[in-house]
């Protein structure tokens, strides 16, 4: 349960750092190896059920595929147009195929990273930790939590409004304008009721003595310990090692050129 127990803020910073580093990479090997590493952590170490994982992961495959082919077709002028690979019965410059592959793998590596975070972190704890470790203002933190609490209610309400409007005889929209009006008719009651809910909640919270001051105690306390730093440094180190490895093997590429 090591990954579950890493301080949520540190975990988030780790993910963000990794994303920033990965965004500098334009070869397919580095993100590919990194994805394998993250999968190992998620399924092997954090013991996330792989069936569940696949369910969350699969939508990104569509994005990745879209990225791949459009990057192939709409790529910038290649520097070395002679080397070619044949795909789907057409010749493409090797360079372009590599870049396209890299970018779609990049999407998948981002997805694996955020899933690693989402599947091992209690989201409320993350917000609480932001407040305790990252000086996030309490007014924002508790305001966000109060709003987040409404999400199931708002989902139910959207469903109710839909059927309530059907009873009124609202037809299925045929033109774009009708479509927009219908969207507006759904959105307005939803927005109006959520604004009222928000106001009432604010009053209730202030009635419990909430002022937004940082001077408060915490029921759930989050701390940063050595293990959290080990996680952060370890993750960044692995990514750097992967980058160095593919550099040594001659794969690593910055944008528009090799290192």
């Amino acid at each position: 349960m090591f990954i579950h127990n890493v301080n949520p803020s540190i975990k988030a910073i780790t993910i963000i750092l990794s994303v920033l580093l990965l965004a500098l990479v334009f070869d397919p090997i580095t993100p590919f190896l990194f994805i394998i590493w993250i999968w190992f952590l998620t399924i092997g170490v954090a013991k996330i059920n792989w069936k569940k994982y696949l369910l969350y992961f699969s939508p990104f495959l569509i994005f990745a595929v879209g990225m791949f082919w459009s990057n192939l077709i709409f790529a910038n002028e290649p520097i070395n147009p002679n080397a070619a690979i044949t795909l789907f019965g057409r010749d493409f410059p090797t360079e372009d195929v590599n870049t396209a592959l890299s970018l779609s793998l990049r999407i998948l590596s981002f997805a694996s990273l955020s899933l690693l975070f989402l599947l091992t972190t209690n989201i409320v704890h993350f917000i609480l930790s932001l407040m305790q470790q990252c000086k996030f203002p309490p007014k924002l933190a508790y305001g966000i939590l109060a709003g987040y609490r409404f999400s199931p209610m708002i989902k139910d309400e959207l469903f109710l409004i839909r059927s309530a409007h059907r009873v009124r005889g609202v037809n299925r929209a045929k033109t774009l304008k009708e479509g927009f009006n219908q969207y507006k008719r759904f959105a307005v009651p939803l927005l109006a009721s959520s604004i009222r809910k928000a106001e009432r909640t604010a009053i209730a919270m202030e009635s419990k003595g909430f002022t937004g001051s940082r001077d408060r105690t915490f029921y759930r306390q989050f701390t940063v310990t050595t293990k959290d730093w080990i996680f952060l440094l370890g993750m960044v180190a692995v990514l750097l090692i992967l980058i160095i490895m593919s550099w040594q093997l001659g794969y690593f590429k910055w944008y528009n050129g090799e290192l």
Partner: peptide, 26 residues
Amino acid sequence: MKNWRLKEVIVMATLSVVFGVIYLAF
């Protein structure tokens, strides 16, 4: 954050939830 009313912050958060829900539908 001093000059922000709590209700303004929560309104922003609930608006985000509403569009988040609508967005997820899309």
